[in-house]
Write a protein that binds this DNA or RNA. Structure first.
Length: 550
RNA sequence: GCUCUUGUAGUUUAAUUGGAUAAAAUGAUGGCUUCCGGAGCCAUUGUUGCAGGUUCGAGUCCUGCCAGGAGCACCA
């Protein structure tokens, strides 16, 4: 990367580590560094040493900063690369030979796919796509919440209905399941004994009770059907769906290992884990009735993933409300000494809150993702006319995804219908529209530019906006690299929205098809193609479609 | 109670190991099409919650306060 190259140049010149950044104003150069200020060296001296490098057109000192201006050939050459590499442009092999396991989505069985799970699904998928683009071997795992005490609650409630109301389990819908779950919590509030009943049912389930298993199986099937519909609507495919129940028979050895290594002890009948120096609060590994907890299941999951995939990185795209838990989990893995050189990362996402507070499944206060998606599609339909259903879907879903991805993942999002359905301004459809525009121009010109003599173009005579576009096009690699390092798809959004804005300005100011000379026209077409390609590559990483017309 | 976390135009957000004039969208108002797509473009808004501190330089780091959110043993 260019940035590192310049950093190395500086280091060789002054024997000090330097950090080179992208100034946000092109007047301050293409790259700049504050190393002279930091190290109290005369900046001019450094500038003089570096200005001989073939990379630079000029090196300037302003306010103690050293600003580097790249030779224009660099940007022209970059555009040639876009034309040549197309959908490969921006991809790399930095991740070659490395494996990353990405745990995302993870909806809970027997609850409908709520708006809250949208974030994990979309951000997780974007990170998956991003790392793949960078050459990593990616393994997506949808860790379904299909085991645990909540099934005790549900089974208890369903069992009651079977007895009293002759309920038939195969006739249940996902809404019924959700209603039963809410009902249980309402009644348990009046009568806390019910919680014990629920725990007992879960214990039975874990011990292989036939009736419990049957009800659980039915719930799982009902839910999976619903999830499949949502995933197809979202255009998301996750490599593996190994839910928690997959690990039921893999927990005993882990429990034994924990005991052998003296990491767990009994307290009030339960097996708990306490951390050295009490740096983290303690956690129940196995309940006093002998039933397992999510904690033990997660350890089994990690063991399985390490063995099966030998990953270098395991990331969890899970809400911020579990951050303490993941610290505890990762610390436990550390204490077990399982994977000293594997990196564990909890990519938090902020909670999706309603204007009045937190959405709660227990209280039945949820917004169903499917409703949101359908509403978005309807709104897109209004704008595009009824004629094209597929397009309305691409646009509507794109809007919902972009809305989420464009905000920093760790921040809470207050759910707002108007905002999530936004089709204008900084939105998915804006980018799709801009892309469609580039395709339309190219089509009118008779196809993509193939034999443009970009090296014949004189950078200096270009219009200002052309220079800017050309430069911004060359920042794509850095944008995705940064996004990957920080697990922040919103950086890609920032970048590509800014690029699209510049293109629309260019489009309004400058004639493409009616340029003065043939070379100029070809160059502008090449720019148009380049911008379209980079928008498309960005959207693809974000998991958003790029229709040619809209 | 303890721990973590957030506070930026009216609203929703952005801001590259601390960097140069804090940037967008949205809402409102006005304007732009003899010409490549008007889901577009242009023009008009700031005590970064408050008070200190560190630094050449603070939205970013530290301290205190105020206000929200999350978590803290048999839920996940």
């Amino acid at each position: 990367m260019l940035r590192e190259e310049i950093e190395n140049l500086i280091e060789r010149a002054i024997h000090k580590k330097a950090f080179v950044e992208r100034p946000d104003d092109f007047n301050y150069g293409d790259f700049s560094t504050n190393v002279a200020i930091k190290e109290k060296i005369d900046p001019q001296e450094i500038a003089d040493k570096l200005k001989e490098s073939p990379l630079f057109e000029k090196v300037e000192v302003v306010n103690g900063f050293i600003n580097f201006f790249l030779k224009p050939e660099h940007f022209l050459e970059n555009l040639s690369q876009v034309l040549k590499q197309k959908e490969e442009y921006g991809s790399s092999n930095v991740g070659k030979g490395k494996t990353i396991v990405i745990d995302y989505s993870g909806p809970n069985i027997a609850k409908s796919f709520g708006i809250g799970h949208l974030r994990s699904t979309i951000i997780g998928q974007a990170i998956y796509n991003l790392y793949k683009f960078l050459g990593y071997k990616c393994i997506g795992d949808n860790h379904l919440g299909d085991w645990g005490t909540q099934f005790g609650k549900l089974i208890f409630q369903i069992e009651l209905k079977i007895k009293n109301e002759k309920l038939k389990i195969h006739e249940l819908t996902i809404d019924d399941l959700e209603r039963l779950y809410v009902e249980f919590h309402k009644e348990a509030e009046q009568n806390p004994v019910l919680n014990d009943e629920a725990r007992a049912w879960f214990k039975k389930l874990e011990d292989g009770d036939k009736k419990a298993k049957e009800i659980w199986q039915a719930c799982k099937e009902i839910s999976l059907k619903e999830f499949a519909r949502i995933y197809s609507l979202l255009g998301v495919k996750i490599d593996n769906t190994l839910g928690e129940s997959f690990y039921v028979d893999k927990m005993q050895p882990i429990f034994e290992e924990m005991k052998d290594k003296d990491l767990t002890k009994q307290s009030e009948g339960a097996w708990v884990v306490e951390f050295p120096n009490n740096e983290l609060s303690s956690l129940v590994l196995m309940k006093s009735d002998g039933a397992t907890t999510y904690y033990l299941r997660d350890l089994a999951t990690i063991k399985y993933r390490l063995k099966k995939w030998k990953p270098n990185i395991i990331v969890y795209e899970v809400g911020v409300d579990q951050s303490l838990y993941f610290k505890q989990l990762f610390k436990t893995v550390d204490l077990l000494g399982w994977a000293k050189d594997v990196r564990f990362e909890h990519i938090v996402h902020g909670l999706m809150r309603s204007k009045t507070g937190k959405f709660s499944t227990r209280k039945g206060d949820t917004i169903h993702l499917e409703d949101v998606l359908k509403e978005a599609i309807n709104k897109a339909k209004e704008l595009s006319g009824e004629k094209n259903k597929e397009l309305a879907k691409q646009v509507g879903i794109g809007a919902v995804k972009y809305n989420d991805l464009s905000q920093h993942h760790s921040r809470d999002i207050v759910f707002d219908w108007d905002k999530i359905l936004n089709l204008k301004g900084n939105s998915g459809p804006y980018l799709q529209y801009t892309f469609a525009r580039t395709q339309s121009v190219l089509e009118k010109a008779g196809g993509s530019p193939t034999s443009v003599k970009i090296n014949k173009v004189d950078f200096e005579v270009l219009e200002e906006i052309e220079k800017i576009l050309l430069k911004k096009l060359s920042h794509f690699n850095e944008a995705i690299e940064q996004a990957a390092i920080t697990f922040s798809p919103n950086l890609i959004c920032n970048y590509v929205f800014d690029l699209a804005q510049s293109f629309n300005l260019f489009y309004n100011e400058i004639q493409i098809l009616k340029a003065d000379t043939e070379l100029q026209k070809q160059f502008r077409l090449a720019l148009t193609f380049g911008v379209g390609q980079v928008i498309k590559n960005s959207l693809t990483i974000l998991g958003i479609e790029s229709p040619n017309k809209m």
